[in-house]
């Protein structure tokens, strides 16, 4: 669907595990890896990347759902609408007129939306891009029949398990870690930089309290709109928070 294809490439990044993967599952349709495509038939596990951004994609995802036993959607685009969902906050028609010489050639939906807005999904794997180990965990869980070991917890938990010093407390940075779904291994805080929320909101994301704290220590409302409206800005919890701080 609408995406940069980076999450699909994560599968090819599993270099050490590719052989084992090839033995455990029969990969029948994977355009990034092979031109031997076989989109017909029914599938035990379908991984779908990207958001629903055009009328054709909407048709296609309904078909994919119908032929898939388990549908796992991967990446920020597929789970929240992605960075392209920034258009949801603006006038889509106006964007097209500015960007394209002949907008009438372009067929796209006004909003970029996650797959789950259109069809039931079995699992949402978050991230921009997704984490390779988490992707292998989802596939392994499907192969052996366990619940994917992917906790819906704050990035802070991974940060603390790594022993990283909190950038909010010790450096005064804005960090979305406390309200963001874990999975990246606290990548940005480990490099002394606040989390920008690319795994999207976790459950119980208390974005209001985080924003109040940041405003209280000198951040502006515009800073809050920028912080919450980025890669997963259209995820409901983040969208709600950024709208609260709009001028």
């Amino acid at each position: 669907m609408a995406s940069c294809d980076g999450c699909q490439l994560t599968l090819l990044d599993c270099e050490d595990e590719l052989l084992a993967l090839g033995e455990a599952v029969d990969i029948v349709h994977f355009p990034e890896a092979s031109s031997a495509l076989r989109p017909q038939g029914r599938f035990d596990l379908t991984l779908v990347e990207g958001s629903i951004s055009t009328p054709e994609q909407l048709e296609e995802i309904r078909h994919i759902r119908a032929v898939s036993h388990a549908l796992v959607v991967i990446g920020a685009c597929a789970t929240s609408g992605g960075v392209q969902a920034l258009r949801n906050f603006a006038d889509h028609e106006q964007f097209m007129r500015v960007v394209y010489a002949t907008p009438s050639y372009v067929s796209s939906l006004a909003d970029s939306t996650p797959i789950s807005a259109h069809v039931p999904v079995d699992f949402e794997l978050r991230g921009c891009p997704i984490d390779k180990a988490q992707l292998l965990e989802v596939i392994t869980a499907s192969v052996v029949g366990r619940k994917p070991g992917i906790p819906n917890e704050a990035v802070c938990m991974e940060c603390k398990r790594r022993g990283v010093v909190c950038v909010m407390v010790a450096r005064g940075q804005t960090c979305l870690g406390p309200v963001t779904h874990a999975g990246c291994g606290a990548l940005c805080p480990a490099y002394d930089r606040g989390c920008y929320g690319c795994f999207g909101p976790r459950e119980s994301a208390n974005t209001g309290s985080l924003a109040t704290w940041e405003l209280g220590r000198g951040r502006s409302k515009a800073d809050m709109v920028r912080a919450f409206r980025l890669i997963t800005g259209a995820a409901p919890a983040f969208e709600h928070e950024s709208k609260r701080h709009e001028p």
Partner: peptide, 9 residues
């Protein structure tokens, strides 16, 4: 609970 982020820190 209005202030708590439930982040677990």
């Amino acid at each position: 609970a209005e202030r708590c982020l439930a982040c677990g820190n």
